[in-house]
Computed example of a mutant assay.
Amino acid sequence: MEATGTFTVTAFVPAEVVVEPVVVTALPVGVATMTKIFDGEIAGQAATVFTAAFDQDSGTGTYLAMESFEGVIAGRAGSFNFLHSATTSGRDRSDPFFLIVPHSGTGELAGITGTGDITVDADGTHHLRLDYDLT
């Protein structure tokens, strides 16, 4: 099955994380929490833990995000986790990865599995597409 929606980030809060030993690389690593609101066939909210090695000036880097979604997918209510990552050169996204975490679904989304994709329009609109099964 496939479902699509758009989302907006309503909160992005950097978190202080101390990692030992300290290793200096060409790109700083940061961690933040995010809140997202989803509209469309995918409707609800997500709490996200976001980490990235990223250069603010050039917009280049790679991120990894773990999301806890609660809402409705194509008329079915529940919650589940998904993770995604991608690399950006500042102008495009490459090497995307997306996975619904097995055994994380609740309610009418219990048993959800699958993959997906996030795309961003030139105007900054973010789209989420899920390719999923419910067993």
Results as ranks from 00 to 15, higher is better:
Ala46Lys: 02
Asn81Val: 03
Leu130Tyr: 06
Ala15Val: 08
Val72Ala: 13
Val13Ser: 15
Thr4Arg: 13
Gly114Met: 04
Ile100Arg: 00
Glu108Trp: 01
Gly30Lys: 00
Gly107Lys: 04
Ala47Thr: 12
Thr125Cys: 10
Tyr132Trp: 09
Thr113Glu: 15
Ala15Ile: 09
Leu128Cys: 10
Thr4Asp: 13
Thr8Glu: 15
Phe97Trp: 08
Thr6Phe: 07
Thr88Asp: 07
Leu64Tyr: 10
Leu130Gln: 06
Asp133Tyr: 05
Glu67Phe: 01
Met34His: 06
Gln45Leu: 09
Arg129Ile: 04
Leu128Thr: 05
Thr4Cys: 11
Leu64Thr: 04
Leu83His: 01
Ile112Met: 05
Ile112Arg: 00
Val24Ile: 11
Ala65Thr: 05
Val13Met: 13
Ala32His: 03
Phe97Asp: 15
Tyr132Met: 07
Glu70Trp: 02
Pro21Ala: 09
Phe7Ala: 05
Leu64Glu: 09
Val49Tyr: 14
Leu99Lys: 08
Gly111His: 07
Asp92Thr: 02
Gly111Asn: 06
Ala32Trp: 04
Gln56Gly: 02
Ile37Phe: 12
Pro14Met: 06
Val120Arg: 09
Val17Lys: 11
Ala46Met: 05
Leu64Lys: 01
Pro102Gly: 07
Val18Leu: 15
Ala52Trp: 04
Gly61Gln: 03
Thr87Met: 07
Ala47His: 11
Asn81His: 15
Val9Tyr: 13
Arg91Ala: 14
Leu134Asp: 10
Gly75Thr: 03
Asp121Pro: 01
Ser94Glu: 08
Pro96Val: 00
Thr60Ile: 02
Ile73His: 03
Ser68Ala: 13
Ser85Trp: 04
Phe80Glu: 03
Val101Phe: 05
Thr113Pro: 05
Ala77Cys: 06
Asp55Gly: 03
Ser68His: 14
Leu128Tyr: 06
Ala3Met: 07
Ser94Gly: 10
Ala86Asp: 09
Ser68Phe: 10
Gln56Cys: 00
Leu27Tyr: 08
Phe12His: 15
His126Met: 12
Phe7Glu: 05
Leu83Trp: 04
Thr62Ala: 14
Ala47Pro: 02
Glu108Val: 00
Met1Asp: 15
Thr87Glu: 11
Thr119Ser: 15
Ala65His: 03
Leu64Gly: 10
Phe12Thr: 03
Val18Ile: 12
Gly75Arg: 06
Thr10Met: 13
